[in-house]
Design a protein around this nucleic acid. Structure first.
Length: 494
RNA sequence: GCCCCCAUCGUCUAGAGGCCUAGGACGCCACCCUUUCAAGGUGGAGAUCAGGGGUUCGAAUCCCCUUGGGGGCACCA
């Protein structure tokens, strides 16, 4: 069970879709396990399904893995790029000769055989089994075909697939996470390892590549647990060394089924585009199925690597709790220095907002952000025209509950005149607040009631960053202009 | 249908026979702070540890059964 080999693990994504949250977490666990013991981490692209694999998906996977901060020692580092490492090529589509060779070995030793059944025939068998409430598995028709029968099929123009003759024995192994597990391979049908068109299939290629790349520990999703006895049978038939297996629990939808695109947002890119921080994502994902055993819960990637142990990974699946992710994301956002946050916010705010202004609003909006994308709405008032701001609200909204239009107009005009007395140099948050509070008091208004219409006039929104800081950033001219626009709107309705 | 895996607050989890009248976090509720919204602070509700049998002086922790959930059984990965 324990391997005395060098610790080598791999992630083996299939570029048939964007990087999935579940793949990201499994990749993270492999990465952490490797870092923890100073092992080697390999990226292998499983693109045997040529029809569904694309370089765009490969790019999505590699870029997002990098984005998360996960790095690897061997394998392609950029989509479509060169391999790094001496066990390559690291794309399965480039390893066909090896698969063909190994399939021939199996054929030669009798561990595998050619199968001429057509899709229709297989389908018919499956339906019959289903009707008879029997387990769906290959009936072994081609297992012991004679020379002349094979020749007859060939003459018909049939192309043969290669099936592995599963030895009917019990397979037991010690899973890193689940402990002793036993399966009875007598219950399995012979499965196809090479399609009739010559393309080798998953169960076969993983086994061949894990051996070729000297993978010592196979850490993968629990959905592969029941495939493991197939892999072990293949490993034995090929005379390979058996790696240590570890099956991590699945990430679940809210209804506890395997996390899927249909019920959850599963692509890492989507989270990235919404403004989740990679640090938060990593922290969150790591704790979905693992914990250091203490009550600490905020960890950097390096800290996780120092603490992570595969053996402590849970057995039960974990529901993806988006609210918890939000909480962590807010935590990480608030911990960022002004410059850092401004930099990360750049893609999420209007281009019209220059860098200097962006840096200045950061302190005003930081603690109001759950995701980076929340910034757009918060800073909009800085780049909108006075007319756009005015168009954002109804005149009636300027009138406090305890006042009428005339009262509201008076208050607004009072605010305007107080602020107009200030020159550019005095237009700072502190002075503005002092003056506005004074005005409210002179008017006999509660500060909150007095500020509300001003906030609406200046930002066009009932909810905004702190009012006086916002006015300072906006500047004297625009602030006064917006107060005028509000007064005008009020006059028109009155 | 068959095989395998799993089971502590709504959710993520601590817990590896006595430290548990089960702890933390998210979410929720209340209060405080407060120019809005947040953030922050304080407090609260919330789990007879799925149920039932054992084992033991003692079980959330070990064993068995039941129930529930999940995964797999492709010429997809």
């Amino acid at each position: 069970m324990t391997s005395d080999r060098r610790f080598r693990v791999r992630m083996a994504p299939s570029p048939t879709g964007p990087l999935h949250i579940g793949t990201a977490r499994t990749s993270l666990y492999n990465y952490l396990a490797a870092r923890h013991v100073g092992g080697t981490y390999v990226l292998r692209i499983e693109d045997t399904d040529v029809a569904r694999s694309t370089v765009e998906y490969e790019r999505d996977i590699i870029d997002n893995l990098h984005w998360l901060g996960i790095s690897w020692d061997e394998g392609p580092q950029v989509a479509g790029g060169e391999d790094v490492g001496t066990y390559g090529p690291y794309r399965q589509s480039q390893r066909m000769d090896r698969y063909a060779r190994e399939a021939d070995r199996l054929l030669a030793s009798g561990a595998a055989y050619r199968c001429y059944c057509t899709a229709e025939e297989l389908d018919a068998v499956r339906r019959a089994q289903d009707a008879a409430k029997e387990p769906p598995r290959y009936n072994g028709r081609c297992r012991s075909l004679g020379e002349e029968e094979r020749a007859a099929f060939e003459a018909e123009g049939r192309r043969a697939a290669v099936r592995f003759a599963v030895p009917p024995e019990k397979i037991r192994f010690t899973d890193l996470i689940r402990g002793e597990v036993e399966f009875d391979n007598a219950l399995l049908g012979d499965f196809v390892i090479v399609r009739a068109d010559g393309m080798p299939l998953y169960h076969f290629v993983v086994v061949v590549d894990d051996e070729a790349m000297e993978i010592s520990h196979v850490i993968r999703g629990e959905d592969h647990l029941s495939n493991t006895p197939k892999h072990i049978a293949l490993i034995r038939a090929l005379g390979y060394r058996e790696p240590v297996f570890g099956h991590v629990p699945l990430i679940l939808n809210a209804d506890r089924s395997k996390m899927s695109k249909r019920k959850s947002q599963t692509s890492v890119t989507a989270y990235r585009e919404q403004g989740y921080l990679p640090e938060a994502m990593v922290n969150f994902l790591a704790f979905l199925g693992w914990s250091p055993g203490t009550e600490e819960e905020v960890f950097t990637l390096d800290e996780l690597a120092a603490r992570f142990e595969v053996g402590k990974v849970h057995k039960a699946g974990a529901v993806f709790d988006a609210e918890r992710l939000d909480h962590l994301n807010g935590l990480y956002i608030r911990a960022l220095a002004d410059e850092q946050l401004a930099h990360r916010l750049r893609p999420f705010v209007p281009d019209a907002l220059d860098d200097a202004s962006l840096l200045r609003v950061v302190p005003l909006i930081r603690e109001r952000l759950v995701r980076l994308s929340d910034a757009g709405e918060l800073v909009a008032f800085l780049v909108e025209t006075d007319a756009e701001v005015a168009a954002n609200y109804e005149a009636a909204a300027l009138i406090p509950k305890k006042a009428d239009a005339a009262g509201a107009a008076a208050a607004l005009s009072r605010a305007r005149s107080v602020l107009a007395d200030l020159d550019h140099a005095d237009f700072s948050a502190e002075v503005l607040e002092e003056r506005c509070r004074g005005a409210a008091e002179a008017l006999g208004w509660k500060a909150g009631d007095f500020f509300r219409p001003i906030r609406l006039a200046v930002t066009g929104r009932a909810i905004s960053p702190p009012l006086f800081g916002s006015m300072e950033l906006l500047g004297r001219d625009a602030t006064l202009a917006r107060l005028d626009a509000a007064a005008e709107k009020l006059a028109v309705t009155a």
